[in-house]
Design a binder for these strands. Structure first.
Lengths: 351, 351
DNA sequence: TTGTAAGCGTTATCAA
DNA sequence: TTGATAACGCTTACAA
């Protein structure tokens, strides 16, 4: 009853849904076998010049384009797609990270599946699942807090390399690309000390990795200068929003024994500090972690410590591509340098 | 010679490369047929409670996860992936667009392939090819200048819906989601007129769609107020960078008959105008198109006309998903409203 | 309720 | 140099 094996079926079965032309269509049109088309498309094996031309003509005529999904189904092929999992793109930090990573990946022929897991471990877990389900060849992740042990299976047993960016993931062992948070904290604080400040407050987001390291740098700088840390000047916010930072600054500056300087450890927080100052019509010395646009255009240009965020993304992508290409050396930890840009707010002296 | 049809092959062929477990692995472990696993995973057909539990147990035991790539190879299935093609993510406009689109898509179960084609038509064309090769179910594109007729085939014959954002594509017919550029231009200019200005310059990026419409609004507002347009006050930059805008502003303000107000038609340009003013230690009245962070914190807070960029992205994504779901009504053009936010620079009077 | 078989578009293997 | 065939992991008919 099956006619298909004896009769040469020249046209598509009627129930066909996917409408894009396939190698079979090209082959029919060029009057060659399907496998010959494959050889031409991939430039492997041997095909007579004239045959190849006929195939190419057919390809152009019907607008054939290789189906990468089918291709990656074959053993030994990867999907030529990586996954990128990070926070809110509205945060310029994540935006430049993404920009740079996409650039490197695309240039190497990889597509990028972008997913944003906004600080929610459960969302993050689901997102990773979606990406793995699409068989990404590797993952770049800015990990949230919370246990990431579930990634070890992916990275290890499943051989899907993972690179963490900006902070390591607790419970998971993989490559990490970081900025030198501790040195940044130290540099920011030291700069304020150099301007004569001794009562220096630090504003931190919740106990993320970065905040902890920046705080450590802050403490080291104080200790080195013989300044006794005042725990009233160490403020850890609950969520790390601009509004919280603004409120906290308000409290600090209107307290009995206010600080003369503030080290704010993220871009959002710096904005909050600035807004509070404006509202109070005061100014304190400020150094922020992370540079931001127009920082130099504000009434008092803002002094910051910063690192090259795009380089962070580029490096992560390059590292991941190396891993995908088979580099199986032990996990690497890269730390990018941080530099201070003095613009004004950090140079406001004590009275 | 083929033993495979008579002998029950219970273990994997040795040359296996992809190491993730498959339905076959689950089936073996649960002692059922592969198709039963499929039924359980997809919740279709009928499976006895007890059998389903055995299958689920096996799935959890070996950490099975459905291969979406293989799945989407079947007729009538789509890849559950859309493509997003836009400009430099460092531009907050694109970043919010992407954020919103990704959010909507993910929530609907779609993954997003992100590609950035930086104002280069050839790069854009290649990027579209890569996305189509991965069989995206739809495309959201912020089109560059240049002919986009090649997209008609994709949108029409191949049934891959396309939604253009921020500007229509020349030569291609598809849904478009825009902001009301002309009204924005009109509102910005009218606001300056209302403050008493009559010599109002306009700074535009190259003749992109948006700039043209904003310019038209500018002209209409002038005409309506009986102001004769001065062509010396209409400046079209060659690339639209901040630096160019700064230089152009410098030229304008130091000319024999300088304008008393400037309408800058993009965020980058507005920054350039502000920098030039600072450098010259002058101030002119300014209204910018597109809001930006810290606009309200600058020495003179910046007046802008703006629309809801995230809504732009959300709307585009929702429209695309509708199309993917089969909505085949004629192409739609959505225009989002623009509002003016008066902050200071627009309210600087004449002398 | 469960299973067999065919096929989605591609590439690797082997034979002609 | 070219082609027939199996297989990648999955779902949809159809059969038991």
């Amino acid at each position: 009853m099956e006619g298909w094996s004896s009769t040469h079926v020249s046209s598509r079965p009627p129930h066909r849904q996917n409408t894009r032309p396939t190698m079979r269509d090209v082959a029919e049109r060029a009057g060659v076998a399907l496998v010959t088309v494959s050889r031409v498309v991939n430039g492997v094996g041997t095909v007579r010049e004239e045959t190849a031309e006929r195939v190419m003509a057919a390809i152009n005529a019907i607008g054939y384009q290789r189906n990468e999904l089918a291709r990656s189904l074959r053993p030994g092929q990867n999907s030529m797609t990586i996954g990128l999992l990070l926070g809110d793109l509205t945060n310029p930090f994540y935006a430049s990270l993404a920009k740079a990573a996409v650039e490197v990946a695309n240039r190497a022929g990889y597509a990028v599946l972008l997913s944003t897991a906004d600080e929610d471990p459960e969302v993050e877990r689901r997102a990773v699942g979606e990406l793995i389900g699409r068989r990404v060849a590797g993952l770049i992740i800015v990990p949230d807090q919370g246990d990431h042990a579930f990634l070890n299976e992916i990275n290890g047993h499943d051989h899907v390399p993972i690179v963490f960016v900006d902070r390591p993931a607790t419970g998971a062992e993989a490559d990490v690309v970081l900025v030198d948070n501790e040195d940044g904290g130290r540099k920011a604080t030291q700069h304020l000390i150099d301007q004569g400040h001794r009562r220096i407050a630090i504003l931190g987001a919740p106990s993320y990795y970065s905040t902890g390291r920046r705080l450590r740098g802050y403490r080291k700088a104080l200790r080195r200068s013989g300044i006794t840390p005042d725990s009233n000047l160490v403020v850890t916010l609950r969520r790390g929003t601009t509004e919280e930072a603004s409120a906290a600054t308000h409290t600090l500056l209107t307290s009995a024994d206010p600080p003369t300087a503030v080290f704010s450890t993220t871009g959002f927080l710096t904005e909050g500090v600035l807004r509070a100052c404006r509202q109070l019509q005061t100014s304190v010395a400020i150094v922020g972690f992370d540079d931001f646009k127009l920082a130099d255009m504000l009434p008092t240009p803002v002094t910051v410590v910063t690192s090259d965020t795009e380089e962070l993304g580029r490096h992560a992508a390059r590292l991941l591509l190396d891993r995908i290409d088979g580099d199986d050396a032990p996990s690497r930890r890269t730390v990018l340098p941080v530099q201070l840009i003095a613009r004004g707010t950090g140079e406001i002296g004590t009275q």
